[in-house]
Structures are given as C-alpha cells and as structure tokens.
C-alpha cells in the first residue's frame, strides 16, 4: 500500500454518493495517463513490461516509446463536488482481456471511451460492447499528439454518435481537461433515461 497514514486523503463526511465509471478504449490510447492525471489519491496501476511476443499481438504500429501495458486495472478516485465522488476503473485495452472487462464493468454507471484521433476505428469495438450493455458513455478524443483534430461534426459522424452523447477533445495529461471530460460524462449519466431502466431491473 505504501503511502503514509499522515498523507491520506480523507473524504469529507458529506461525501456519500459514489459513482463508478469505466475508462475504456483501445491499446495505448492513454487510459492509465487519464486516470493518473485525474485521481486525487495515488492511483493503482497494474502494468507489465511488454514482451516482444506481445508486441506482435498488440499492434505497436505508430506507437512509440511504449514499454508497459495495463494487464488488469487502473484505479483512481476524484471528488467532483460536495456530493459526488468518482471511482474510475480503467480496463485493459486489448481484446483478449474482455472476459475480465465484463466483471469490472459490474455496477458501473457509465463509461468514458478514449479514442486516439489517428486510430478512431480502434474505439468502435468497445463502443459496441457498451451499447449492447446499455451503459451510458461519452467519447473523449485524446489529442496528446497534437495532430490536426477533425471538427466535432466529423468526429461525431465517424463514431455515428447520437446527439445526446457527449464528445470532447482532451489531453489526458491535463488535469482540468480530463475533469471536463469526466463531468460531461457524469452529466450525461445523470440525464440518461437508461439509468432508470437499470434501477428497476
């Protein structure tokens, strides 16, 4: 566990509403970085050094300097307001980890899908899974490479997003940008009629 008791971040007594959200997306899109940036507590990472064999399975094309990958979970916590505290569960991006993904998704109220602007299509699979589960989601384009970002209209068209689904661009290393992305998701979850269907299920 590591951290000193004196360094603990305690939640105020008024905090009672826990909101579990998933941070999902394809391999190397920046999920760990996102959770790292936004968490108010020391984040939990389960990273392993990638093997050469793994590098063949996980397409590293165009992704430089990546030597580790999340094999189980990223976890972080962020108090968004006096009453809402966010528990973020980042899940492995690779297809072969989907069986664990199902378990971690349990009880999640929403998901933030990260997408790399150069590899948008790699986020389509996870969006299909979310839609099958009826889990509200938002899309955040990680623009960490600072390439030319298509317009929101073009991005919405690429993802075939319904108008009410939030779409934001953010740098996963930027604290306020990641917070804005999460807030857009939480607002969407709060407004989502699906949530009521789940409650009565």
């Amino acid at each position: 566990m590591g951290s000193e008791p004196s360094g603990e971040v305690y939640l105020p007594d008024s905090v009672r509403t826990a909101v579990k959200v998933l941070v999902v997306g394809p391999f190397a899109v920046g999920k760990s970085t996102f959770v790292n940036t936004l968490s108010e507590i020391e984040p939990l990472h389960t990273e392993e050094t990638m093997t050469r064999d793994g590098a063949v399975v996980d397409d590293l094309h165009g992704i430089t300097d990546k030597t580790t990958t999340t094999v189980a979970l990223d976890f972080g916590r962020r108090t968004l307001s006096d009453r809402v505290v966010l528990y973020m569960f980042g899940t492995p991006g690779q297809q072969r980890f989907l069986s664990m993904w199902e378990d971690l998704a349990h009880g999640a109220l929403g998901a933030l899908v990260l997408a790399d602007v150069a590899r948008l299509e790699e986020s389509f699979d996870v969006i299909s899974v979310l839609e099958e589960r009826g889990l509200p989601y938002g899309v955040a384009i990680n623009d960490f490479n600072s390439v030319d970002i298509p317009s929101h209209e073009e991005l919405r068209e690429a993802f075939d997003l319904l108008p009410e689904i939030p779409l934001v661009t953010c740098d996963a290393r930027d604290r306020s940008a990641t917070a804005r992305a999460m807030i857009s998701l939480v607002e969407h979850v709060l407004a989502s009629p699906l949530q009521h269907a789940q409650e009565s299920a």
């Binding site: 566990m1 951290s3 008791p5 603990e8 971040v9 305690y10 939640l11 507590i41 020391e42 939990l44 389960t46 189980a72 979970l73 976890f75 916590r77 528990y87 569960f89 664990m100 199902e102 378990d103 971690l104």
Partner: peptide
C-alpha cells in the same frame, strides 16, 4: 486508511475478475 482501502478493494475486484 480510506484511500488505501479504496485501492485495495479495486485491486481485489480485478483479482476476482
């Protein structure tokens, strides 16, 4: 501590998964 309990729980959930 509370933060460590949160992290331990998340880790255990992943383990259980």
């Amino acid at each position: 501590g509370e933060a460590d309990a949160d992290r331990f729980a998340a880790c255990l959930a992943s383990l259980r998964g």
